[in-house]
């Protein structure tokens, strides 16, 4: 009896503790974004001090001689648009049509994509640098976005394939009997009924592109071409005496993706349940 009470108490402490640990940092980031340096040093927990909304203006336009959050966010969005188009178009077509081929082909085909996830980024870094350098596409967020789109193909193909395998066959057969061709069946029957799964992989992609640093820090050298995840690293060095602006920058990066998650968390959880990862 005593042990079970203890166990229940330990469980409650764990649950409450981790909930606080998961939420408080976000609250702190937002609170400290409104403070100036003096207040942050005096009240590191954000309670007390004056409000300085102008920190957001500073973060948005950036430190002197460097781009700001406005530019970084735009670059992140450019990279995401390129990645999304490449990833979802190639990935959904491949994941569906491979289900129309013999099992042996499917196994080998999916095996190629599994093998693609094994290659570590550090090995690709130098070849990408050489490639984009020779194509004069360093510091181009769109080009990086295309790479992101293909690098995330394994996740998209495997998740969507897991979904398409269970797609009701009768619907597809009925559409063939109605005289639709293969592409029409895909576009007009399969895709409209797969919005949930496609939303799930798009969100996994968005979260990954939003936070990817290792490739971006090498391939986006000009400060005006950097995505938000890399740009904030520059802020870290340049806003050492203006922490409020640094926290405002962190708020601007973290809020969109957190909001997206809070609205669409069901899709993201489902994508992970189907085998999705952030990559």
């Amino acid at each position: 009896m005593i042990t079970s009470t203890l166990a229940r108490g330990a469980r409650q402490i764990l649950m409450l503790g981790w909930t606080l640990l998961a939420l408080v940092p976000f609250a702190l980031i937002i609170l400290l974004a409104f403070r100036n340096n003096t207040d942050i040093y005096r009240y590191p927990l954000g309670v007390g001090g004056t409000y300085h909304p102008e920190n957001f203006v500073t973060a948005w336009s950036g430190p002197v001689g460097s781009a700001g959050m406005g530019t970084f966010l735009a670059n992140s969005i450019f990279a995401f648009i390129a990645a999304l188009i490449v990833n979802v178009v190639l990935g959904s077509v491949a994941a569906y049509f491979v289900t129309r081929l013999p099992q042996r082909v499917t196994t080998i085909y999916l095996g190629i994509f599994v093998a693609g996830t094994v290659v570590p980024f550090v090995l690709l870094l130098v070849p990408y640098y050489r490639l984009l350098n020779s194509l004069q596409m360093l510091s181009n967020p769109w080009a990086l976005g295309v790479l992101y789109g293909v690098l995330a193909l394994p996740t998209t193909v495997l998740v969507l394939n897991a979904y398409f395998v269970d797609f009701p066959r009768e619907l597809v057969e009925a559409a063939y009997i109605d005289g639709l061709g293969d592409l029409a069946v895909f576009m007009r029957v399969v895709i409209p009924l797969s919005k949930g799964a496609i939303t799930a992989v798009s969100l996994l992609l968005a979260i990954w592109v939003w936070s990817e640093t290792q490739l971006a820090i090498v391939l986006l050298q000009d400060s005006g071409s950097q995505t938000a995840a890399v740009g904030i690293l520059g802020f870290q060095g340049q806003f050492t005496t203006n922490l409020g602006a640094l926290f405002a920058g962190l708020t601007i990066i973290a809020i969109p993706v957190v909001a997206l998650y809070l609205v669409f968390h069901r899709y993201i959880t489902k994508g992970i349940a189907l085998g999705g990862v952030f990559r």
Binding site: P25, P44, W210, S211, A229, L250, V258, Y261, I268, T269
Partner: peptide
């Protein structure tokens, strides 16, 4: 389920920048 996954969706660099500021002696949270 929703709250505990929240740290996983925030960009890793952003949370790392936040935490390294928080670990500063004297001034960090």
């Amino acid at each position: 389920r929703v709250v505990w996954f929240l740290p996983g969706v925030a960009p890793a660099t952003a949370v790392a920048v936040f935490w390294s500021a928080s670990f500063q002696p004297g001034t960090g949270s």
